[in-house]
Design a protein around this nucleic acid. Structure first.
Lengths: 341, 341
DNA sequence: CTGTTAGCGCTTTCAC
DNA sequence: GTGAAAGCGCTAACAG
């Protein structure tokens, strides 16, 4: 049971002034006697006064809160993005509500409901691997609450997005494998529901094409990112008549799982099979050999997502601009592709 | 600019009933005509109605929100704890506001302010390494808002806490090193401001004592957890006249940094120096050799913290119970202490 | 079972 | 520069 919280009325009574005056003093209204203001601020301090944002939000129709919806918290990626975003949001006077969808569509939908209930002023979201319908997100547009997507975006919503140039990044990664002499390069791809999977796949295909390497369908395996399945796919690949000599994985956890299996089979990395991951996750520089990967600018992604959102929030709905920011990923070369990088 | 949000008045008007009836239908009040209820629910759906929790909170004097304050988001530990906590909170109908203090006292203080402003019904917190004063947290007690500490707790506040049995865990870890034949065991300790550092240090000392191994002061190095300094300490240790043959590190990131330096120096792990970390963080099973560590029950810690908090929230301030839950950590033996674990 | 009324804590006209 | 009064969206007595 909560106790009575100090309100502006308590302050007003103590000072024998009206609550409007107290409000003005607290919010920095121009027409107020400096003396009065000083007195109000002092008593506020003394009485442990805290502005009740619920009522402020109710009356101003803004909660000064930004919602963040991410699919998971298992990898380093999303926490890092959030750190970047939080900096900008805090500076702009906004608070952040974080929720993670646990990679399930249902939780994502329920999370958006919560965000609506708490009257967020804006939302940045990265969708789950399951999300195919976007009705729950389109509601925000209809209500005039801006949304910005990052990383895993919804392609058929015309809103700002922050993405990594997955195509170029994948291309760079695969071309690097080719430069190290690999020719039969497998790709453990993500679910085709995610645009990032498709873009990375295309980068892979394009790199092969540029170097006149035929695409071999049995070397391309899309999967749902449940790591326990990686073992099966790798075994399958290694037992092919002509096993691959290179592997480009949709992300680092996948690549690392793959490396574990490959090492256990007694194959040498990178001599027998070169490996490239994606994201520069925890552990990529710990495993041996180190994992060559494409590092995404996580903090920057969070920062920009919030910046775009703040920009939208300050415009009228009619002036929303669906800017798409594309960030570049860096190829980090480690031992999984090159003996002495 | 937000558009007009649908309110219960919109629904009431559409159905030609009073807003109280609408409210009752929406909140599941018993005395209501099933027909009316059905009609209300239907129009609510059609009009994209969302309950405005700001106003609900204002009137019921509870926001159905729980605040979470953690010191950092860099390691796997806190995100995992949050996942565990969020499950329980969601099930109990509470939403979570997460904020991370970036290991600075100032940010922590400002985060608590935000939590107050948003009228959280309760708070779970793990303090920063800098936090020495607890005034900003004691305010909550005075206001009748329950606090539960987890992991990094405030020792002079008499509130519920969830901690790991750091003493026993450290003892187990160090004794394990001793069992593997190590005698000169160094300890890279945490800052003494944190109780966990002190408890782990004591476990270390006790293990030495039990096995009649003298404590050597120069082998005990407390530090502020800024990883870049680990290199210096390890170099110092290895250049001693009698360098250590074992190392117990305050946490896994520290241990992993240490291993990198030690490996670069050409020493063999575990033969020349056995290593034990704490937390079973990302990468501890990826580095080679694998890092022996003490795994903390992260999800459980989050779950229990929220459970204790919910319990407090349902009591009157006069009946708050400062229960302290101590969880056990598991020793996970890997290659950093034993050749073939 | 339903409508009326008051009011949560605050901001914001509109007077003075 | 300050006060009085209205009202944000909703719930909770209190009547009927």
């Amino acid at each position: 049971m909560k106790k009575h919280q100090t309100t502006i009325i308590d302050i007003a009574r103590k000072l024998n002034i009206s609550k409007s005056t107290v409000s003005r003093a607290l919010t920095g209204h121009p027409s107020i006697n400096p003396e009065t203001k000083k007195a109000v601020l002092a008593t506020a301090e003394k009485l442990d006064y805290n502005r009740n944002m619920l009522s402020v939000g109710l009356i101003t129709n803004k909660s000064s809160t930004i919602g963040v919806i991410v699919p998971e918290f298992q990898t380093a990626f999303f926490p890092k993005v959030i750190i970047g975003g939080q900096e900008v949001a805090t500076q702009a006077g906004y608070n952040i509500i974080v929720s993670q969808s646990n990679e399930t569509y249902e939780t994502e939908v329920s999370n958006t409901k919560v965000m609506l209930n708490y009257c967020v002023d804006g939302l940045i979201v990265s969708i789950t691997k399951e999300t195919r319908s976007y009705e729950h997100l389109k509601i925000f547009q209809r209500k005039g609450i801006p949304i910005v997507f990052f990383n895993r975006v919804c392609e058929d919503m015309n809103v700002p997005k922050v993405v990594v140039n997955d195509f170029d990044a994948a291309f760079k990664g695969v071309e690097h494998l080719i430069h190290t002499g690999k020719r039969r390069i497998a790709h453990l791809a993500g679910p085709s529901s995610l645009a990032i999977s498709r873009r990375r796949l295309n980068g892979y295909l394009q790199a092969l094409k540029k170097h006149n390497i035929p695409v071999i369908d049995e070397l391309i395996i899309p999967y749902d990112l449940s790591l326990e399945k990686v073992k099966i796919y790798i075994k399958y690949l290694l037992e092919l008549n002509e096993p691959p000599d290179g592997l480009f994985a949709i992300n680092d956890p996948t690549a690392i799982e793959a490396m574990k299996v490959i090492k256990k089979k007694g194959l040498r990395i990178p001599e027998d099979i070169g490996i490239v991951g994606f994201s520069d996750d925890y552990g990529s520089d710990l495993i041996e050999p180190g994992l060559t990967t494409l590092a995404q600018p996580t903090h920057e992604m969070g920062r920009i997502a919030i910046e775009l959102l703040l920009d939208q929030m300050n415009r009228d709905v009619s002036e929303w601009k669906p800017i798409i920011k594309t960030l570049e990923a860096d190829l980090i070369i480690r031992g999984s592709t090159q003996k002495h990088p």
